[in-house]
Design a protein around this nucleic acid. Structure first.
Lengths: 144, 144
DNA sequence: TCGCACTCGTTCGAATTGGAACGATACCAG
DNA sequence: CTGGTATCGTTCCAATTCGAACGAGTGCGA
């Protein structure tokens, strides 16, 4: 087993962390203008894109949050009327999270700016021919 | 300005977030076995690689932490004897953080496993020919 | 049917985080 | 020198985070 990382490998590793961190920072800052946390935005986005109503555990797995963290944030969003909890019909333990109309409206207001930001910071900085390579490579890393 | 992201672009974005998040999760889990936080490990690693003694603000800029967060973690590490604070000679406001022998020893114990993990999860999953492309692309994203 | 292991979402407490102060020092233009 | 402004690291507080434990419900094999 290799005992160290070459300069190139190290640089790639740092670039990955750097890119992720930077994106995270800038996005968080932008969302703060809408009184949204990254996690909260991620929840809304998940609920917005996809079938209506997602279980808490499934949601927590998709995002980078523990179940308890999600419970907390779901409570925050619920108290702001952006999200609603509804008991699951096919599993008495389950709770499904839904977007309220207000939540959907807020998401619609925030999403365009978010997309623009992703474009500026990420997509537009990469040669289109390389984007597919980057996508596939990173997808391999994300894969279990 | 484009109003949306194409499927490919979206996939690339998700891949980036997914890769970063996954790496972060797994690394955090590994470090927990050594009673270290990601942030704490990052501090030790920074102090270990480079000139001895780094100022708090400079350190905070390099890592993804606010100054106050760094003050807290420096305190934690200091109370465990892994790190030492020393006043800067050329700036009376400054404090330089140093690795203690214990800190250096712990770093030496943890680093190999960390490197192995980075290899397994990141480097080895990417075609060597693509690694340079990924590195350069992500470096552009990280760039200010 | 019973038991047993697993998953559900929540609660609790402790740890960590960021942001806005703050006192102290450095730096710079005038 | 003198003022104003920026930076240093710290402190404080509120918000958020995680992990462990929990009661409740599910599902499966014996």
């Amino acid at each position: 087993m290799a005992r160290h990382l070459s300069d190139d490998e190290l640089a790639a590793y740092f670039a990955l962390r750097g890119a992720g961190d930077r994106l995270q920072r800038v996005v968080a800052q932008q969302l703060r203008a809408h009184d949204l946390t990254e996690v909260q935005f991620a929840i809304l986005a998940q609920l917005g894109s996809g079938t209506d109503g997602i279980g808490m555990s499934e949601l927590a797995r998709g995002l980078v949050v523990t179940k308890s963290g999600l419970t907390y944030q779901a409570g925050q969003l619920e108290s702001r009327g952006l999200v609603a909890r509804r008991p699951s019909t096919d599993d008495d333990r389950g709770v499904l999270l839904h977007l309220t109309p207000d939540g959907r409206a807020l998401l619609a207001r925030v999403l365009p700016a978010h997309i623009t930001l992703v474009r500026e910071l990420f997509i537009d900085r990469i040669d289109p021919a390389d984007l597919a390579i980057v996508r596939d490579a990173l997808a391999q890393v994300a894969r279990d």
